[in-house]
Design a protein around this nucleic acid. Structure first.
Lengths: 223, 223
DNA sequence: CTGCATAGTAACCGTATAGTTACTTAACCG
DNA sequence: CGGTTAAGTAACTATACGGTTACTATGCAG
């Protein structure tokens, strides 16, 4: 352990000193995501991002132009990540109700696992979606869950286990809302109610609650 | 209109030049609320707040200590306002289902009318509720809607129009979530879906959707 | 009617911050 | 292998920003 290896000193510090644009770019993006989602766009400091990434500040400007360009890259990267995860969801083997349950729980779990996505959306909505509107990339990334919901609704209606005439976008918003609000506002809610809403058992309970609410809404009225 | 009144010139400019601590304080608070809810705490500029309020910047420090003190005052004032509105809600004359409908629509309408409340909560959650936790005032301001929901749930269960065993806090969070998320994320959602979610008819439709979702969840299962 | 506390003004200040300049060094291509 | 391009560094800069200093004016208590 304490011995030095005089033999193979060809590139002892190569891994960290060798130039590697992709790694540097990725490190900046990671650091920026952490800093911006923790402090917001205006609260984030470019010096802090550079320090966190372990790169010279100049590199942020080299790769991303300016702070706003970096923010846009973070936004696009984060949206691309959730879209990719959504596309990985396969519901074809399940019946309509089980498929809907899986879709709802998938969404809920994604929010639990990716608080940075919630923070970033909050930040971008404070900006009135100004950056999102400029991103052609994100606007071509259609939300696949809406399409999946549409299919489930049709199948469910055919199987007579769901009501007909439900708007998939309205439903998608509700599924997202029930999880998003709980997670994104967990700090104020926990304070107001004097309960720790982030406790694992509380999160599991919330997931079941959301499923119940959505399935109750979809259930045909026996009249 | 154009004539001057030479008679009563005792205090011609009195209203704007006379000292008036309460009015000045209120003007600062109003301006700070607008600036902070538009830009966030870190994005808000004390010079902008002073200019908007039409007062000397020094006065912000005179009345509120520093920027953080001003933010806390905005937070407390905004929470006090919603609590006051909630207390004004009277559901005693309605049956359980009608009462629940009114409570849900009241919450929804409050979010529509008070976007500053939504922005401020988003900002405070980015702060991980750090300021809320320091405010004894807000923490003594219990959410009255939870109590009202509890009463409605009991009455509804007795009338056999609601299921039994529903947690009022979980339900409160869901009622808030279905409206809050839609409004607070309306900019990104409108962009993604290419629809204007802020259109009045869309808001009305959303209100009815939320009522439907909540009442379906409360409905007893005929099994 | 005066003097003292408080409301209010204007100019100022230190520093934090986004962004730049001027330069060096590695890598790759012909 | 040499030279052009891109990756990377260090030091710097202009300014925006939160906060302060030093002062003036008002109004009310005694």
């Amino acid at each position: 352990m304490e011995g030095s290896q005089p033999k193979s000193q060809v590139k002892p510090r190569a891994a960290s000193l060798t130039r590697d644009p992709e790694r540097t770019r990725a490190a900046i993006l990671r650091a920026a995501t952490a800093e911006i989602t923790a402090k917001g766009l205006t609260g984030a400091r470019v010096d802090a991002i550079a320090a966190r990434a372990g790169v010279n500040k100049r590199m942020l400007y080299h790769y991303f132009g300016d702070k706003q360009g970096l923010y846009l890259a973070v936004l696009e990267h984060t949206y691309a990540a959730i879209r990719a995860a959504e596309i990985g969801l396969n519901l074809t083997e399940l019946d309509a109700a089980a498929g809907m349950r899986r879709l709802v729980l998938f969404t809920w779990q994604y929010f639990i696992d990716h608080p940075e996505f919630l923070s970033l959306l909050a930040t971008e909505n404070m900006n009135r979606a100004a950056y999102l509107k400029t991103s052609k990339q994100i606007r071509t990334l259609h939300a696949p869950l809406v399409g999946m919901i549409e299919v489930l609704l049709k199948r469910g209606a055919a199987e007579k286990v769901f009501r007909a005439g439900i708007d998939p976008i309205e439903l998608y918003i509700s599924i997202a809302a029930l999880g998003f609000f709980y997670m994104s506002n967990r700090h104020t809610l926990s304070t107001i109610f004097g309960e720790n809403l982030s406790a694992p058992e509380r999160l599991a309970r919330r997931g079941e609650h959301i499923v119940e609410v959505i399935l109750a809404f979809l259930k045909p009225t026996k009249s």
